[in-house]
C-alpha cells in the first residue's frame, strides 16, 4: 500500500513546529541546539518527499549538503557552548544575559 504524500508533509510540518516551539521554550542551550537540528531535519524530510514524488534527484542531492552543513553547525555550536561554559559555568540561556538593551 502506498502512503500518500500528505502524510510525509504533515509529519515534517509537525517536526518543524516541534523544533520552533522547542527553541522558544527550552532553556538549556544543548536542547535548543537539538531543536534547531530537528528543524533542519524536517526540511530534509520535505526535500526527500518531494524528490521522490517528482522523480527528481536534485532534492536528494540537496539533503546530503544539508546534512553536512548540519554536522558543521553542530560542531561549531557545541564548541561555542563549551567556551561559554568555561566562562560562566552554566549553559542555561536565561543566565547568559550580560548583553541586553
Amino acid at each position: 500500500m502506498q502512503i500518500p504524500i500528505e502524510y510525509y508533509l504533515i509529519l515534517s510540518a509537525f517536526m518543524f513546529s516541534v523544533g520552533v516551539v522547542g527553541v522558544l521554550t527550552r532553556r538549556n542551550a544543548i536542547v535548543v541546539f537539538m531543536c534547531v537540528e530537528l528543524m533542519l531535519n524536517s526540511a530534509n524530510l520535505t526535500l526527500i518527499t518531494y524528490s521522490s514524488y517528482l522523480g527528481d534527484t536534485v532534492g536528494q542531492l540537496f539533503v546530503f549538503f544539508v546534512m553536512a552543513v548540519a554536522a558543521a553547525e553542530a560542531a561549531v555550536g557545541l564548541a561555542i557552548i563549551i567556551a561559554i561554559f568555561r566562562n560562566k559555568l552554566t549553559i542555561n540561556i536565561d543566565e547568559i544575559n550580560i548583553l541586553k538593551w
Binding site: 541546539f33 528543524m39 553547525e73 544575559n97
Partner: peptide, 21 residues
C-alpha cells in the same frame, strides 16, 4: 564575546532552518 557568539549561533541556526524549510 562567548555570549555574543552563542546568541548568534542559536538565532542564526533558527533563521537558516526556517529558510531551508
Amino acid at each position: 564575546d562567548s555570549e555574543a557568539s552563542l546568541k548568534y549561533v542559536i538565532y542564526g541556526g533558527v533563521a537558516s532552518g526556517v529558510m531551508l524549510f
